[in-house]
Design a protein around this nucleic acid. Structure first.
Lengths: 141, 141
DNA sequence: ATCCTTATTTAGGTTAACCTAAATATTGGC
DNA sequence: GCCAATATTTAGGTTAACCTAAATAAGGAT
């Protein structure tokens, strides 16, 4: 598989803390499909950057800054995934693509996408647009 | 700056061949903001993969396979960039973001986006959707 | 035809993200 | 409280994409 970014580690740590109460080396390694020694190495670097506190043999906990980053990534992820789903993309695919896009989108573009998502979901015109697109899709796709 | 992918080299080579008639080490290095020795190294690898023919001291030319890849990337790029522009994203920003997305989008998602783009541009409902979104944006954004 | 300039390649080094194997720490059962 | 099983870290190695400095090739002016 592909090379993981620091951002991905932060996301996994956040998820594990939330769902399992803690984020240990082995759990992270498993979740991210990497061997434990690689995780140890990255955790040290994340600590240097002030994104986590790393306690050897215990695990990682996000700092305030790390948590901010995770929250931010999650929002970007949701924006993409939700938008793709609304357009009809399969759930698995939408989530997988969002995992990639979230790391590369600019703030400006993200703002537009968030707004467009809001438009599609919350305005009558937006909802009609989705219906029209679905009809269009069924006809042409 | 960021690490470049093989795909980015292919795109630049395609562009240079098209616009300057040839793609030499120095031109590629300049275009991609990397030093010439790094380019030489990558060109050898691209040749091994059958994507270019590399003639030392002369430059690179895309093979059929390389050209296919470039064409494909360009289409992905255009899909994203055009979509973002339609939503109102600034040209520079849209192009820059498309440069990233194009390397990460799945075929399934790309199909949906192409179809949505077609819908927005070519159907009356799609065009109305864009107008409605613009109004929405001016009001809320 | 030779020399000088300019471009390219070669040689060798760095960094970051991975890996395996070996050493070490933690934990649960007795 | 000790010991075995399990998890983590340390040590050392690989690969890919970069870099700088030095060597070499190509091309134009005289």
């Amino acid at each position: 598989m592909r090379r993981k970014t620091k951002e991905e580690y932060i996301e996994i740590i956040c998820l594990l803390e939330r769902e399992q109460g803690r984020a240990q080396t082995g759990m992270i390694a498993e979740a991210i499909d990497v061997k434990p020694p690689s995780v140890t190495e990255v955790l040290r670097k994340l600590e240097e950057k002030g994104l986590i506190v790393y306690e050897p043999y215990v695990g990682a906990t996000l700092t305030e800054a790390g948590f901010e980053m995770a929250r931010d990534l999650w929002q970007r992820h949701r924006t993409f995934a939700d938008l793709l789903r609304l357009l009809g993309v399969d759930r698995r695919v939408a989530e997988a693509d969002a995992c990639q896009f979230e790391h590369h989108v600019s703030p400006e573009t993200l703002e537009y996408l968030k707004l467009f998502l809001e438009f599609l979901r919350e305005s009558p015109e937006g909802r009609r647009c989705l219906e029209d697109f679905e009809a269009f899709r069924k006809q042409r796709g």
